[in-house]
C-alpha cells in the first residue's frame, strides 16, 4: 500500500504494448471520488485499452492502477468487480435468450447470499432475497424507461434502450465506480441528453463515474474533470472548463472554437 491520495481511481504511469505497438504509454491521471470524469480522445487513442486495463480484462505491462488506494494491477476482473467497479462494454451486450428484466436481475446477483443448498430448500431467507431482487428490478426498470419492455428479449430492444439497459444492469448492485465505454455511441441527440441526465442522476446517488468517449460536446457538458489522450498518452487533464481552454488540446484535438462555449 502506498501513500493515500483519496482518489477513487488512480492510474500511475500505466503502459500497455501489443507487440511493437504502444497502445497506452505512461498514462497517469486520477479520478476524484464522487465526480464525473471524462476520458476523451479520438478513435485509436487507447481509450478502450484503458477500460480493459482498469477493469482487469487486460494486464498492464507497466505502472500501477489503484482503486480506492488499493493496487488492482494484475487482479482478476471478478475481484475488481466485487471491489465495487462496474463497467459497460463498447459493443452491445444483451444477455442472449434472456429478457430485459432477467438482464437486470443478473446485475443483482451479488445481492444474494444463498448458496446451492439454501437455494434448493427455498427457505424464507431465499424468498426474501428474491422479493428484494424483484422490487429493486422494478424500480430500476422504471427509472430507465424499460418497464414496458420488461418481458421482451433484451436482444430485441432498440439500440438506445439497450444502452440504457446495460447501464441499469451495471448500476444495479450499486457499485462505487462506474466505467462507461463509449456510452453515447450510436445514440441520437434526444437519447444522448437523456443519457447525460441519467448519468448525472447515477452520480448524484454517490457513484463515481468515469466516461470514455470521443463526443466532445457530450463530454464537456457532462464531466466535471476531463483527461484528454492521444496516441496513447495524456495530453491534458484537469477541470473540464480549463482543459477546454488549453491551447494544446484545442490545437491537437478539439479544433478551433468548438468546446469553450459548451462548458458550464
Amino acid at each position: 500500500m502506498t501513500s493515500t491520495t483519496g482518489a477513487a481511481l488512480t492510474l500511475d504511469k500505466v503502459t500497455k504494448r501489443f507487440g511493437g505497438v504502444v497502445a497506452v504509454n505512461d498514462v497517469s491521471f486520477s479520478v476524484a471520488p464522487g465526480s464525473i470524469h471524462g476520458l476523451i480522445g479520438p478513435n485509436g487513442a487507447g481509450k478502450s485499452t484503458l477500460v480493459s486495463l482498469i477493469s482487469g480484462y487486460q494486464r498492464a505491462d507497466g505502472g500501477t492502477i489503484r482503486l480506492d488506494d488499493v493496487a488492482i494491477t494484475g487482479v482478476s476482473p471478478l475481484r475488481i468487480a466485487l471491489r465495487g467497479l462496474a463497467r459497460t462494454f463498447q459493443a452491445a451486450t444483451p444477455l442472449q435468450g434472456m429478457t430485459v428484466r432477467e438482464n437486470v436481475e443478473v446485475g443483482l446477483h451479488t445481492t444474494y447470499t444463498a448458496g446451492l443448498a439454501r437455494t434448493l430448500l427455498r427457505g424464507p431467507g431465499v424468498r426474501r432475497e428474491d422479493r428484494e431482487c424483484r422490487a429493486a428490478t422494478v424500480e430500476l426498470l422504471a427509472r430507465y424507461g424499460l418497464t414496458e419492455s420488461a418481458d421482451r428479449l433484451a436482444a430485441d430492444l432498440p439500440f438506445g434502450q439497450l444502452r440504457f439497459l446495460e447501464i441499469a444492469r451495471a448500476i444495479a448492485r450499486e457499485p462505487r465506480i462506474l466505467l462507461l465505454d463509449e456510452p453515447a455511441a450510436g445514440l441520437d441527440q434526444t437519447e444522448t441528453s437523456a443519457l447525460a441526465d441519467l448519468l448525472r442522476h447515477v452520480n448524484g446517488e454517490g457513484t463515481t463515474v468515469l466516461v470514455i468517449d470521443h463526443d466532445v460536446p457530450f463530454m464537456f457538458s457532462l464531466c466535471h474533470d476531463v483527461t484528454v489522450v492521444n496516441f496513447g498518452s495524456v495530453i491534458a487533464s484537469g477541470v473540464a472548463a480549463e482543459v477546454a481552454r488549453d491551447p494544446v488540446v484545442r490545437d491537437a484535438y478539439l479544433g478551433s472554437g468548438s468546446a469553450g462555449e459548451e462548458t458550464e
Binding site: 462494454f89 444477455l95 442472449q96 435468450g97 434472456m98 443478473v106 446477483h109 448492485r173
Partner: peptide, 17 residues
C-alpha cells in the same frame, strides 16, 4: 439466471460480479 448469463457472455457476467 447466472448460469444462463455466463453460458452466452462470460465477460459480461464477470463484469456484473
Amino acid at each position: 439466471r447466472a448460469w444462463r448469463a455466463l453460458a452466452t457472455s462470460p465477460d459480461v457476467a464477470v463484469s456484473l460480479g
